[in-house]
Structure formats: structure tokens, C-alpha cells
Computed example of a mutant assay.
Amino acid sequence: MTRVLLLGGTGDALRIARQLGPEHVYSLAGLGKVPDDLSCEVRVGGFGGSEGLARYIEDQRISLVIDATHPYAAQISANAAKASNAARVPCWALRRAGWQPQAGDDWRMVDDWTELTAALVAFKRPLFTLGREPLAHLDEIPSQQFWTVRCLDAREAHPRARILATRGPFTLEGERALFSAEAFDVVVSKNSGGNATEAKLEVARERGLPVVMLRRPALPAVDREFATVADLLEALQVSG
């Protein structure tokens, strides 16, 4: 019988986890809400790098690793591929397609934080949708800027930033209301793909706002890649 270790933390991963029975394991890094309505085992916390993950795979008699982590969780994906190889079990990955610019979009592509901040010099009211990374740079906010940072982490008030501790999905109507209230002049985003947070791009397009887009990192080769949850679940059912 296949015993799955599902590496998650995304909405897509939760959809997969809801289809897993008690013999399988859903692993979370410990960020955000831990689901309490799953039939499978839920594990919270790290493994200690690829070597620790390989030991866990062997100790728990895992026979398939599924990487359904965020497209920007490059280190976790690298550890999953390396550990699976070391433990001699297959590794599958759910890798949803990124967003593509459409007519009317003004995307400025960047590779790291240094390029990102350089691309923001001319703006005053950026909306950051990168997760928690901007929180480490609040003391570096340029004098002409006021940041809005949307992420899962709640933080104390900051004189030059507003922290929106919230989780998607975000509706088009909700995003329109937020953009109107805050008067953003640029959006900062990862190219996460999917529908949960795409509405901000549509509103940016409607309002003629540029988007500073962080490119996706390179991810390791795995035994099988899937573009959709449905395709992965179908393959999992066939594999037994």
C-alpha cells in the first residue's frame, strides 16, 4: 500500500490532503492555521534539511513524497527531491502554471530584493503581496514611501507601514475596495499562479498600475509533475 508524505501549506495542498486517509501524512512548516478536520495525520515543523527528511521517509516507511508547497518554496522543494532520491522513493510535484501578462499589463520583472527596491524608487504607495519578507525591511522604508504589507503575520503598528494580516482567497470586489481606499500606485507580487490571489492583478490592470513581479525560482527535477490537483489525485488513485 502506498504511504504518502504530502508537503503542503498551500490551498492546493489542502485539497489533496482532504482526499488522504489515516495512513498518510500531511506536513506543514507551522505557518498559518493548522487544519483540524483531516482524516490523515498532520505533522507540523521542519525535518532538519534533506538528510532529516530522508531519515523521516525511511523511519515512517513513506513510499511516495508529494511536493505541493508554494512555487517560491525553492529550498523545501530541493530538500524533497534530494531526500526522496536518497531514500529511493518517488517524488511527485504539483507545479501550477504562473500568471501571464495580458493586454494592458505593465509588469516589471525582478529577481531579488535589491532589484525589487530599485524598481520601487519612483513610487509612494506600494502594496506588497510577497508574504512576510517585507517585514524584515520596515526600517529601510524610503522617506517618500508608505508601505502596505499583506501577509499572514500580525505585527504592531508602524509609523510608515500598514500590515494587513489576512489570508486569501481575495475577491475582485474586495480588491477594488482596498485599492480605492488606499490609493496604491504600484503592486508588488510573486508570480504564484492560481485563482486565490489573482484579483489584485485584474484591479491593477483596471487602474493602469504597474506590477513589480518577482520571478519564480528554479525548481528541481522530480519523477512526475502535475499542473492541476485533479490530475495528481487521478494519478494517485491509479497508483494505489
Rank of each mutant, 00 (worst) to 15 (best):
L5F: 11
G11F: 02
G11K: 01
A13E: 06
L14T: 03
R15L: 08
I16P: 00
A17W: 01
R18C: 10
G21E: 05
P22N: 14
E23C: 07
S27K: 09
S27Q: 06
L28V: 03
P35K: 08
P35R: 09
L38P: 01
C40M: 13
V42P: 01
G45Y: 04
R55T: 06
R55N: 05
Y56W: 15
R61P: 00
R61D: 12
I62E: 01
S63I: 13
Y72N: 01
Y72Q: 10
A74Y: 02
A78W: 09
N79Y: 05
A81G: 00
K82H: 15
S84D: 04
S84C: 15
N85G: 11
R88C: 14
R88G: 12
R88M: 10
C91H: 01
A93V: 06
A93E: 00
L94H: 03
R95Y: 07
A97V: 03
G98D: 06
Q100A: 10
P101Q: 09
V110T: 07
V110S: 07
D112N: 15
E115A: 14
L116Q: 02
A118N: 15
A119Q: 11
A122Y: 11
L130Y: 05
P134A: 09
L138R: 06
P142G: 02
F146D: 00
F146C: 04
T148R: 04
R155L: 13
P159I: 05
I163F: 03
I163T: 07
L164C: 06
R167A: 14
R167K: 13
R167L: 14
F170S: 01
T171Y: 10
L172F: 15
L172P: 07
L172S: 12
L172W: 14
E173Q: 15
F179V: 05
D185Y: 02
V186G: 04
V186L: 03
G194N: 00
A196L: 07
L201W: 01
E202C: 13
E202M: 15
V203I: 09
R207Y: 10
R207P: 07
M213P: 03
A218Q: 04
V222S: 01
D223Y: 09
R224V: 14
R224D: 03
L233V: 12
S239W: 13
